[in-house]
Design a protein around this nucleic acid. Structure first.
Lengths: 161, 161
DNA sequence: ATCTGTGCAAAAACTTTGCAGCAGT
DNA sequence: ACTGCTGCAAAGTTTTTGCACAGAT
């Protein structure tokens, strides 16, 4: 697994390798390694970390007009079943799709919309607590935590002192 | 105006009082105390605690055919601005609308869809932690926490022991 | 009288589905 | 050859919007 920190420090060979891994997994589960899937995976692996299904479909369609929107939607779902990608709801509007690497929790500011990524490690205590109190095993990735970010809290504080 | 033979224990006069409170608040902010608003508020105050906008609209429309769906949507938004109601996303699909009383955190099971309500008190530590680490003031009500509930964890454990 | 809110219908935003043919195994 | 996958178009679901008029202040 490539250990890059951010968006696109990933060389072409890394992309190919990751894509091939997933294709193999797909085949192992009785699926087919189609051209459309390759294209979608390439877009996922090499583009920005968070995109909506629509954004992905649009970008893919631009590069590969033969790949239809519906195919993107269908495959995102399929990839999610395989545990290769997942989607998060960061605020209102459509979900954002990620590769399933370096899972993190999202903090979305309801004033300005800014999204901060928090380490999952920061939530060990809640996790334990919810397991103890409710027997509930929480997965913090699916929904963001909403609230007010530091800059917006400053603004509010200044507005009514 | 059907009084509450419903889910809750609130007498008709309580309903009226709460509705009037909100109408007054509305007027104080330059709004108008319209019939449609009264009807929508009555539905909110006297019905079940969690409903989607569509469910609300449907129920209201059944009792008061003249009140249109769009009016329900518009007013839910308005009421939320006033801090009277709020909506939460408990899972996929449309949001659920609540009165802003007794705020709680939702735990949604991704296997069976069950929703558990957790006390906000249980999250004091995360709240402090996020404020310290990120300057982020979290509001846990907007999005549910997703994960696996106790019964479903049992099932999974039994399936592959 | 003024200006907000409403009913209505139409459209927008996003996603899913049915089907016939194409293509990976 | 078998069956899963895709392109396409069409419809589904949920929410938003424009407009003329009704209604609250």
């Amino acid at each position: 697994m490539a250990a890059s920190s951010h968006v696109d420090r990933r060389g072409p060979s890394d992309v190919e390798q990751r894509v091939t891994e997933v294709m193999d997994l797909l085949r192992a589960r009785g699926g087919r390694a189609s051209g459309a899937r390759r294209v979608i995976l390439e877009a996922l692996v090499s583009g920005p970390a968070h995109r909506t299904a629509e954004e992905l479909a649009e970008q893919i369609h631009a590069d590969h007009p033969s790949v239809h929107q519906a195919t993107v939607y269908r495959n995102l779902e399929r990839f999610e079943e395989l545990g290769v990608v997942y989607h998060s709801h960061l605020g209102h509007g459509p979900a954002q799709w990620h590769l399933d690497q370096n899972p993190h929790v999202h903090l979305t500011c309801e004033s300005c919309g800014a999204v901060t990524q928090a380490e999952q490690a920061a939530f060990g205590a809640v996790r334990t607590d919810l397991r103890d109190r409710y027997g509930f095993e929480v997965d913090m990735r699916h929904f963001a935590l909403t609230g007010t970010c530091a800059p917006c809290r400053q603004l509010e504080a200044n507005r009514r002192p």
